[in-house]
Design a protein around this nucleic acid. Structure first.
Lengths: 180, 180
DNA sequence: GATGCATAGTATCAAAACGATATATAAACA
DNA sequence: TGTTTATATATCGTTTTGATACTATGCATC
C-alpha cells in the first residue's frame, strides 16, 4: 500500500489531477497518510504507464494545463486485488516522542515548549476534523467515517495523555548529566 | 530529528554498536520510531565522520568485530542543540486507515480480517509494553516512562475504537461499485 | 550428516518517499 | 507597487525502506 495505490484508490471517487489529490492528502488523509508532489506526480506517471489510469490534458486559460487522471477497468481490478491481498501496517514516526526520551538532557522550559507545541498541533488536527465533519457530513462511505472517527479518538487520547502526564517530565531532574 | 540524532541520543546511555542500537529500535522505540540497518549503519558512519562519536573496534573470536561507538563532547553539545532547536513532529503512516477508506470496495469478510489483524498487532505491542515495564521498571528517566505510557494510551484507545466501531464498516454496503 | 533456524555482527543497494524548490500566471490584498 | 494566495506541473538531492549478502557459531530437526 504505497502512494501509488492510495492515489489509485482516491481516483475511484472520480477523475482528478495531481493537484486535486494533493489537496485530499492535505485534508481527509492528513492525519494518517502524507504525500507531497514529489511522490504524487511520479506515482501518477507510473500508474498511467502501467495502464491503470488514463490521462486527459485539459487546457486552461492563463493557468497551466490540467492533467486529469481517470481510473481504468484494469486499474480498478488492480486496486481490488491490492486491497485484499495485504496486511496493512500502521506506523508512527514521532520525533516528538524521540525528543521526550531525552527530556532529562533538556532544560525544563524547553520541554514545556515542546509539549505546548504538540498540543497546538493536536488542536489544529481537531479543527480540521470539525471542518471535515461539517463540510460533507452525509453521503460518505462508512470507511471514511470510520477513519475520521479514528483520528478524532487518537488525537483526543493524545491530548488527554499529555495533559495528565506532562508534570512527570519536570519532576525528575537529573543530577549531573555526566554519564560519559 | 532524523535517525542520526536518535542514534546519538541513544549513545548518551552508554557506548553501543549498530547491532545494539537496532535492538533498542526494536524494543523501547518500536512503537514510534523504526529504523533498519540501512539507516543505522550510514548514520553511525556519518556521526563518526563528523566527530560526534568515536568508534572503537572490538575483536571477538568467531564473530565479526564489534564497532563500539561512544558519544564525544562535541556530539553531546550537538545533541543538546538539536533537541532544543526543533519543533518535533509526530506523524502517522497508516496503510490500515488508507485501506479502510476503501472498505466499501472490499468484501466484508476481508474487511473483518484486516480489522482482526490490526487488533492482533495491537496485542503484540501491548505485550511488548508489559515486557518493557517488568524488565527494567525503576531507574528509568522520566521521559522514557512518559513515552511508554504514551504508547500504552494510544494502543488502548486504538483497540477500544476498533472494537466499538467496526460494526459500522459492515453496515453500509454499496449498491453497484460502478462509479467510473 | 545435512538442513534449517536463531543469534551475533557489519554492510550494501535499488526503490521509494521526503522536502524543498523552480516555473508560470492571475487574482486579491495591503 | 509589492506581497501573498491559489492554480498547476515538475524536478532533484537526501533520507528512509526493506531486502539481501556475508561470516561464524550453536542448536534442533530430519
Amino acid at each position: 500500500m504505497d502512494v501509488k495505490t492510495v492515489c489509485l484508490g482516491m481516483l475511484t471517487d472520480g477523475p482528478a489531477s495531481g493537484y486535486d489529490l494533493k489537496k485530499e492528502f492535505e485534508s481527509s488523509f492528513a492525519h494518517f497518510f502524507a504525500a507531497g508532489y514529489g511522490s504524487i506526480y511520479p506515482a501518477l506517471s507510473s500508474l498511467a504507464e502501467d495502464g491503470l489510469v488514463d490521462c486527459e490534458l485539459v487546457p486552461q486559460d492563463g493557468k497551466p494545463d490540467r492533467k486529469v487522471y481517470r481510473i481504468t477497468d484494469t486499474g480498478r481490478a488492480f486496486l481490488l486485488e491490492a486491497l485484499e491481498n495485504t496486511t496493512p501496517c500502521h506506523k508512527v514516526r514521532s520525533e516528538f516522542l524521540a525528543t521526550m526520551c531525552f527530556a532529562h538532557l533538556m532544560r525544563p522550559e524547553v520541554v514545556e515548549a515542546v509539549l505546548d507545541n504538540r498540543l497546538a498541533d493536536i488542536a489544529r488536527y481537531q479543527e480540521l476534523f470539525r471542518e471535515l465533519e461539517t463540510s460533507c457530513d452525509q453521503d460518505w462511505p462508512a470507511g471514511a467515517e470510520f477513519v475520521l472517527g479514528f483520528g478524532k479518538a487518537m488525537t483526543a487520547a493524545m491530548e488527554t495523555y499529555i495533559r495528565d502526564n506532562r508534570h512527570k517530565l519536570a519532576a525528575k531532574p537529573v543530577a549531573t548529566t555526566a554519564a560519559g
